Simulated scan of single mutants.
Amino acid sequence: MNQKFCTHCGAKLTPGAKFCSNCGAKVGTASSTTTNAKLSDKFSKFKINNRYLIVGLVVICLIAIFGGVKYRNDHSLNHVLPGSIYKITDNNEDDYIYLAFEHGQWIMPKHNSKKDLKTVEQEGVIKYNEKHYSPDNKEKMTYSIQKNIMSMYEVTPHKKELFIKLKCKEVSPKKLSGKAIGYNDDGSVDDTYNFTMTKVGTINGQ
């Protein structure tokens, strides 16, 4: 049997004794108190850490909720344009064309028909361009966006020509409208007109 000692004075304890014969302290009182104090301290720290954890989780949830709302309400061109197919009309005429946008490129279906539109939806802009316009993919139609202004280009290995610039006054997931500026090959303005673009499809189910 291991020899026990008084936690108060260090004297040897008689086996089975409830009090120390040297100082009279109750056997086990100090260690019990110390153990309880340690447990209390650990529990207190656990509660504090838990409080920080809960606060942290609440903050993360709030960020996720408001971030998601902001994302869903993001009606910028950068958000609504990629992966979309639009029908664009001149407000002064009944004519229309289809335009599709994907991976920084745009395309106009070759026959401007609904059947051709389905092909764009399935193949995407880049593959459609390779099959129907530029087999070697050296000619591309690209676009860039600055706020609510979209510039559309025709690009070859030797030059990059501004084709049209769309200044959007209304931007929503289903509709774009504003003023269009068409350009000649030499960069001079060819025509300006009001336009409306209505979303009619998405590419590859995007």
Rank of each mutant, 00 (worst) to 15 (best):
M1K: 12
M1R: 09
M1P: 11
Q3S: 12
Q3L: 07
K4R: 11
T7C: 11
L13G: 07
K18D: 13
F19K: 10
C20D: 09
S21Y: 03
N22L: 03
V27F: 12
T29R: 12
T29K: 14
A30Q: 09
S31N: 14
S32Q: 08
T33Y: 13
T33L: 09
T34V: 14
T34P: 04
T34N: 12
K38C: 03
L39G: 15
L39Q: 11
S40P: 01
D41P: 02
D41M: 11
K45R: 11
K45A: 13
K47I: 06
I48C: 02
N49P: 02
L53G: 09
I54D: 00
V55D: 05
G56S: 10
V58F: 13
I60F: 15
L62H: 01
I63Q: 00
I63Y: 07
I65A: 00
F66C: 13
G67V: 06
G67P: 01
G67M: 03
K70D: 08
K70T: 15
Y71W: 13
D74V: 05
H75W: 12
H75K: 09
L77W: 05
L77V: 00
L77H: 00
H79N: 15
H79I: 08
H79C: 13
S84P: 08
Y86F: 14
K87C: 12
T89P: 02
D90H: 04
N92H: 03
E93Q: 04
D94T: 15
D94Y: 03
I97K: 09
I97S: 14
L99C: 09
A100P: 07
G104Y: 03
Q105F: 01
W106Y: 15
M108Y: 10
P109R: 06
N112M: 10
S113A: 10
K114F: 08
K115V: 13
D116E: 08
L117A: 00
L117F: 00
T119D: 13
V120T: 04
G124P: 00
V125L: 07
V125G: 05
Y128A: 04
N129K: 05
E130H: 01
K131T: 14
H132A: 08
Y133W: 00
P135L: 04
D136K: 08
N137V: 03
K140E: 05
K140M: 09
K140A: 12
T142E: 15
T142A: 02
S144R: 00
S144I: 09
S144F: 05
Q146N: 13
I149Y: 05
S151Q: 14
Y153D: 06
V155L: 05
T156D: 06
P157M: 12
P157S: 09
H158Q: 14
K159F: 12
K160E: 15
F163P: 08
K165H: 09
K165F: 03
K167G: 06
C168K: 10
V171C: 13
V171E: 11
P173W: 05
P173I: 08
K174N: 12
K174R: 14
K174L: 15
L176S: 13
G178H: 02
K179T: 15
A180N: 06
Y183E: 12
N184W: 10
N184F: 07
D185M: 02
G187Q: 01
G187C: 01
G187N: 03
G187A: 02
T192D: 05
T192L: 00
N194Q: 12
F195D: 10
F195T: 12
T196K: 10
T196F: 08
T198W: 00
T202M: 04
I203E: 02
G205Y: 10
